[in-house]
């Protein structure tokens, strides 16, 4: 009897927690389909009374969302490629290879997570301005890559340290060179860690606001987040439905991507990519 009661209580707690995590998102989706008049006539928690797709059309057509999506996508994917490439090589070099400065260089990279992003804005702006890179996707890609390294290297070095040397030794005895060793032995074994890095960095880069706002002034090169901000100003309080539609449009691709990769991500994270 007591046990049954306990399990019901447990279920209740778990359901509550899940609801707390999920309900706001569900609410956002329903809100994006509401007509403006529903906001005043009904309580906020009411479901949408119809499917007012107009909000999405308005948000999409008025704000060049397709261009923003393309830009975000290019900048994110290219910088992710470099982040992963550099992360694997650097973290391998500082944990497994033997050289005097190895540990120091590792620390030097990890140091970066302490740096407040806003400090770098004006100096970076001047650097890019001097190199004539302002207002290009390239400057965003470089910035994203550089600022993505610290955290990624921190994550993967932890993983690599717990990685047994024996496998590598066996490969080397079989006559494997250093590059082959990394590509055929280390990378496959780091798959989970790499996926974790990819996903986390994807979210960070996709969600970046401050850099794209500062470095990009051309309307054709802006990213989704700046577009979102633009909606907020453009529609103000008069059109909550359209604002929520634009927010949902930014969120939905993330959710779909997450759904597809979900198993990998959770595996990567739980497999202990983040080892102390």
């Amino acid at each position: 009897m007591k046990k049954g009661l306990k399990s019901i209580a447990i279920k209740f707690v778990i359901i509550c927690l899940v609801v707390i995590e999920i309900y706001p998102l569900f609410w956002m989706l329903t809100a994006s389909l509401k007509q403006q008049s529903e906001w005043t006539s009904k309580p906020a928690y009411a479901l949408n009374s119809g499917f007012y797709i107009q909000n999405y059309i308005q948000a999409w057509t008025r704000g060049n969302m397709n261009i923003f999506f393309k830009n975000s996508f290019i900048c994110t994917v290219v910088s992710l490629f470099f982040i992963v490439l550099f992360t694997v090589t650097v973290s391998f070099a500082v944990t497994k290879m033997r050289w005097k400065l190895g540990e120091f260089v590792g620390k030097y990279f990890e140091f970066g997570i302490m740096i407040p992003v806003a400090t770098a804005l004006i100096p970076l702006f001047q650097i890019y301005s001097g190199m004539g890179l302002l207002n290009s996707r390239l400057c965003l890609i470089i910035t994203y890559t550089a600022f993505g390294l610290s955290l990624s290297i921190l994550l993967t070095t932890g993983y690599l340290r717990s990685f047994p040397d024996e496998i590598m030794e066996a490969a080397v005895i079989d006559g494997c060179g250093i590059y082959k060793l990394v590509w055929y032995v280390v990378v496959p074994l780091m798959k989970n860690a790499i996926v974790t890095v990819l996903v986390l960095q994807f979210f960070f880069k996709w969600n970046d606001l401050i850099f794209s706002m500062t470095f990009i002034s051309d309307q054709k090169l802006k990213t989704v987040q700046t577009g979102l901000l633009y909606f907020q100003n453009e529609f103000g309080a008069k059109n909550w439905g359209a604002i929520f539609a634009s927010v949902s449009m930014c969120v939905i691709p993330m959710l779909i991507l997450y759904m597809i990769l979900n198993k990998r991500i959770i595996e990567g994270m739980t497999a202990g990519a983040v080892k102390g």
Partner: peptide, 19 residues
């Protein structure tokens, strides 16, 4: 023609002045 949100106008102009 470039648009910034009015909240960010000052920051944008400050960076532009600096460079």
């Amino acid at each position: 023609y470039e648009v910034v949100s009015s909240d960010n106008l000052r920051q944008k102009v400050a960076t532009l002045v600096a460079s």
